[in-house]
Design a protein around this nucleic acid. Structure first.
Lengths: 210, 210
DNA sequence: GGCCTTATCAAACGTTTGTTTAACTTTGCG
DNA sequence: CGCAAAGTTAAACAAACGTTTGATAAGGCC
């Protein structure tokens, strides 16, 4: 479980390659070369290519999940403010760890890896549960109108995902050089936050009509 | 360009396999076996595996794009109704051709295939342009408030994509058997339409507050 | 029938794949 | 030091990969 600097370096390199070329599209030799280690080291450290992917996901998982819990139990903040915090949180997380999230969402849409899929579903469920709590709290207080909880999550995550996964498209829409990742994410981040907040504010205050 | 029944059959089989196992995760032998043709036929008909993917995309492309054009120039329908029609249209299209859209969105997030990416971006641009027209028409008539056009597209497509790409997650949320695709999509389709219509109705009538 | 084009096939091609081996070096501890 | 454990390497492994080959069959046209 505890990893050396070298192992973490390999994971970081693999993460970047998996994100840009896909898991199947990346060979262990690609990873070894980019990480400047011998091919055999990957088997030596991780056992196999697939276990390397699992190690990568497990390692990145440790960094998530905390803060949402305390937010859902926060008593002083109102539902509107909590919603804003959540949006900032999700946008920051998903854009900062976009390689990781790209890999996750690709892996999730692949019908294989039964075991891994279950783990991912559980993580997402746990995070979602807390957003539900906040929405329901707002509903009970009469502040939020009735909305589709599950699809509201889908909208938030889907909108953010979309800007990452279809970056070439949005670069084209916004007249940004396709290769200038930096500029793109600097521009899209505040816009995403503003858009999602307005969207949810409108939706939660008007509710699902008719 | 014109394809025989057999070629279309191979494309259909490949589409299904690419969607569930990924492009790189599917071998030409997989395709040949599932389509019950000899491996050599794939090179013979399409030239290569990559050209098969391109043929698949080109072939599916021909079925799209029409109806949006006439809608954007329709004079009798009001902006609200047009928006509803668009949402029905997108949900129907993307769920019906979910394998195709899954492949597209995975391919778009892969940094390779420069040429193919450009083609995909152009298609998406053309479709988006027409939605922009409708939104702007609503704005000019004073019916829609000011919103983020680009990210509104992202929300619509992203929400739908999300339900397809992360199906295992939403199956878990909605207590549906992960393997029962039929039931899932039958349930999610009307819900998606209702959710997106309410969402956009609220957003477009209140606008981007701050 | 003769002939050209198209279709189909099993077999083989040369690479690349993920993984293992066996020899070697480095490290850490008594 | 001495020596076992851990780290590192080039080379080799079988399997799978996308593609090509050369042979054979079928169909249309003169």
């Amino acid at each position: 479980m505890e990893m050396s600097e070298k192992q973490l370096h390999i994971l970081a390199v693999a993460e970047s390659l998996f994100a840009s070329k896909g898991y199947e599209g990346t060979s262990v030799r690609d990873i070894a070369q980019a990480a400047e280690v011998n091919v055999a080291m990957i088997s030596y450290y991780f056992g196999s290519k697939e276990k390397l992917l699992q190690s990568l996901i497990m390692e990145r998982m440790r960094w998530a999940g905390l803060m949402l819990e305390e937010l859902s139990q926060n008593k002083t903040m109102g539902p509107w403010d909590k919603m804003d915090v959540i949006i900032d949180f999700y946008v920051d997380r998903m854009l900062k760890n976009r390689d990781y999230h790209t890999i996750l969402s690709r892996q999730m849409s692949l019908a294989q890896n039964e075991e891994l899929t279950k783990i991912l579903v559980d993580i997402k469920r746990r995070n979602s549960e807390m957003i539900f709590q906040i929405i329901n709290e707002g509903k009970e207080k009469g502040i939020f109108k009735d909305v589709d909880n599950e699809l509201t999550i889908g909208t938030v995550i889907g909108t953010i995902s979309q800007t990452s996964m279809s970056r070439p498209f949005y670069c084209s829409l916004l007249n940004i050089d396709r290769d200038d990742e930096e500029t793109y994410y600097k521009l899209i981040e505040p816009r995403l936050k503003k858009h999602l907040k307005s969207l949810l504010r409108a939706y939660l205050s008007l509710g699902a009509s008719e």
